[in-house]
Computed example of a mutant assay.
Amino acid sequence: MGAADIVPGVSGGTIAFITGIYDQLIESVRRVNHQALRHLFNDGWKAAWEYINGSFIFTLLLGILVSIFSFSQVIGYLLLNYPVQLWSFFFGLIIVSAFFIIRQIERWRFSSLVSAISGTVFAFWITVATPITLSADYLHFFIGGAIAVCAMILPGVSGSFILLLLGLYAPVIDAIKSLNILTIATIGLGCVTGLLLFSNVLAWLLKNVRDITFAFLTGLMMGSLNKVWPWKVTESMRLNSEGHEVPFLQKNVSPFAYETITGQSGSLVLAIILMVTAIILVISLDRLRSPTHG
Rank of each mutant, 00 (worst) to 15 (best):
L189M: 15
G263K: 02
V114T: 10
F122L: 14
A116E: 11
S88W: 07
A129N: 02
F142Q: 01
A215V: 08
F256R: 01
P230E: 08
A123C: 08
T262C: 14
I181M: 07
W231A: 08
L220Y: 07
V32F: 14
N180M: 06
R107K: 13
L239V: 12
S97C: 10
L163N: 06
V233G: 05
R210P: 14
M1C: 12
S111Q: 06
L189K: 13
V10P: 04
L86G: 02
Q104K: 15
C191N: 05
M275Y: 00
I26C: 03
K46M: 12
L225H: 00
G20A: 03
S55A: 04
F214K: 07
A47P: 05
C150H: 00
F198N: 04
Y169F: 02
L189A: 15
D286L: 15
L62I: 11
Y169A: 01
R38T: 09
V10E: 03
S267G: 02
W45Q: 01
M222I: 15
H140Y: 05
A271L: 04
A116Y: 04
H140T: 08
S265T: 08
Q35L: 11
Q264V: 05
L65H: 03
S97D: 10
L113N: 07
F248P: 06
L62S: 09
L134M: 00
S267L: 08
G263L: 04
L40R: 09
V282Y: 14
N252V: 08
F256A: 06
G144F: 01
L205E: 02
V96S: 12
N33H: 08
G219N: 04
I272T: 12
L154Y: 04
G159A: 13
G219P: 09
L139N: 03
L285C: 12
E50Q: 09
Q250H: 08
D211P: 03
L165H: 00
I21W: 00
R31W: 13
Q85K: 10
V228G: 04
D23Y: 11
C150G: 02
Y169H: 01
S135V: 06
N200Q: 15
N53F: 02
F100G: 00
S28L: 13
F71H: 12
V32E: 10
I283A: 14
I187T: 08
K251N: 14
G243A: 09
L189C: 15
R210F: 14
A257N: 11
V121G: 15
G219F: 08
I21Q: 01
F198Y: 12
F142W: 06
N81V: 02
I212K: 07
G63R: 07
I26F: 01
I26E: 00
L164T: 02
F41D: 09
F256T: 10
F41W: 11
V10A: 02
D5K: 09
F110E: 11
I279M: 10
D211R: 00
L164N: 02
F141W: 05
L86T: 04
V228L: 03
S111W: 07
L285E: 13
L288Q: 15
I153D: 01
F256Y: 03
P230H: 05
I181V: 07
S67Y: 13
V149L: 08
I64N: 11
S224P: 10
K207Y: 14
L285N: 10
K46P: 00
A257D: 15
R238F: 06
R38A: 10
